[in-house]
């Protein structure tokens, strides 16, 4: 993701202007996946949305570290922009809400769940976007940046990606506004408890043992 997604100007701008970026290395955690090692400048492999969900999680939190949206696994530039739009809109609504914050998060993700099978990954929830985000989406759709990892990969891949997204949404329906520290104690509810292996590099580093 750092090679493909975060190096895309639209993604960089969106993160820089609308979010506070935080990074954690999950190496050593029991539920972290495994991967062939690769350096920053090495070419990425082919991924679909949601690949390697135990290795990569993009989590959206309020300033009080309450988790209100998650997207696990690989996200292509367009995917993360869509997730960021959703998160921005939900965050703005959360700020205006005092009493029913949990219901708000639960309902927002229930809506996504309902739409997942029929009208695409985020159908029905785009609503009002900030102007700059709308511009970013427009340029993404005009082919000025790499298209979603899911796009054009055929129905089975899309179904798999939808499954990953469904699991993410279900987590948020079940655990709306879960605190970061509670999540860190047991991320298994989100990423599963099996061990996954993910090789994202095609380059010649296969001789180096995976984690």
């Amino acid at each position: 993701m750092r090679t493909v997604t975060f190096s895309t100007p639209q993604v960089k701008n969106a993160i820089a202007h609308h979010f506070v970026p935080l990074n954690s290395n999950i190496e050593g955690e029991l539920l972290a996946g495994e991967s062939t090692g690769h350096a920053l400048n090495e070419p990425p492999g082919d991924c679909i949305r949601g690949n390697g969900r135990q290795n990569v999680q993009t989590i959206f939190m309020t300033p009080d570290e309450e988790i209100f949206h998650v997207a696990t696994g690989f996200l292509a530039p367009q995917d993360i922009l869509t997730e960021m739009q959703f998160a921005t809109k939900l965050f703005n609504r959360l700020k205006a809400e005092d009493e029913n914050r949990y219901d708000l998060v639960r309902t927002a993700h229930q809506d996504v769940l309902q739409n997942l099978g029929s009208s695409g990954p985020m159908g029905g929830i785009n609503g009002q976007l900030t102007e700059s985000m709308r511009e970013m989406m427009k340029s993404a759709q005009n082919g000025q940046m790499p298209i979603s990892g899911m796009g054009g990969m055929g129905n089975p891949f899309q179904q798999l990606s939808n499954q990953f997204m469904t699991q993410d949404q279900r987590f948020m329906v079940n655990r709306p506004l879960i605190h970061r520290s509670d999540f860190e104690r047991d991320p298994g509810e989100l990423v599963g408890r099996g061990k996954t292996f993910f090789s994202s590099s095609k380059s010649s580093n296969q001789g180096i043992p995976g984690r």
Binding site: F19, N25, F60, F68, R211
Partner: peptide, 15 residues
């Protein structure tokens, strides 16, 4: 809001 990127390995190094 905070965007929290949890990832296996160093974000600026070897992953």
């Amino acid at each position: 809001p905070i965007i929290w990127f949890r990832v296996l390995g160093d974000i600026d190094g070897y992953m």
